[in-house]
Amino acid sequence: MERLTGTFKVKSGLAEMLKGGVIMDVVNAEQAKIAEKAGAVAVMALERVPADIRAAGGVARMADPRKIKEIMDAVTIPVMAKCRIGHFAEAQILEALGVDYIDESEVLTPADPEHHIDKWQFKVPFVCGARDLPEACRRIAEGAAMIRTKGEAGTGDVSQAVRHMRLMNKQIRIVRQASDEELVTLSKEWGAPLEVLRLIKELGRLPVVNFAAGGIATPADAALMMQLGCDGIFVGSGIFKSQDPERRARAIVMATTYYNDPKVLAEVSEDLGEPMPSISAAHLAERELLQVRGN
């Protein structure tokens, strides 16, 4: 038998290996090395972290390939990169660069108001954001091999990630208890593909890994999301916009493993300096919200 590459098994398989770990946003090789040394399981290569994207306004796009290559050369852990929602040409470029995962991300300005990328056309795996179970189901039907909460990126406010994760958990409970005919009605009401709902009922959980993202700024935030049932943590602006990135990065890594051990959490939360400058998501106007992009 020949080697089979780009299968769903190997795509979702890498996400399985990242579980219980922290994926950190970095904007250069130096930050990538700090993240790797602090115990990150992967880095997200970016032009700017979400807090800066939010502040800059305008159109946010895929990073310069040179920047992504520089980061890929700097570390041995997997490197992810973001493309705009629906921008399959950016995704093709990222695949050609050899990145390990693509985040089709609402943090960048969507390129297609109607469609997401048909991710089955790619050998590289994709992670996509979701606010609830139907949205996660749609992304999985499009070929996403990993899901994350959308939260509200660049705020340092974990409340939206909590809301999205609690809602997903609640909807998974509904699916588990639904009869076969009720699943069809749920599929219609939710706009969620039936075959994915059936799979969730059979497994009792999402068929892919689900990480927390969007607003995680402290070790306690990471522990909260892990206790709510997330498989791992994305930290965007939370590390390199804080006063002591290395120390905070190590603390969040420890908190993600020992999320159930308050003594360890107390120890690692001590004396971390200032967190990132934060804004309450409740005070953002509708047009300032990133989570409503793509559905």
Partner: peptide, 21 residues
């Protein structure tokens, strides 16, 4: 890198054919 991740069938001593990821 990830693009080269693969599945293949192996022959394992004492076990036989085994599908590996």
């Amino acid at each position: 890198r990830q693009l080269d991740s693969f599945e293949v069938d192996l022959q394992i001593k004492h076990i036989g054919e085994f599908h590996a990821v």
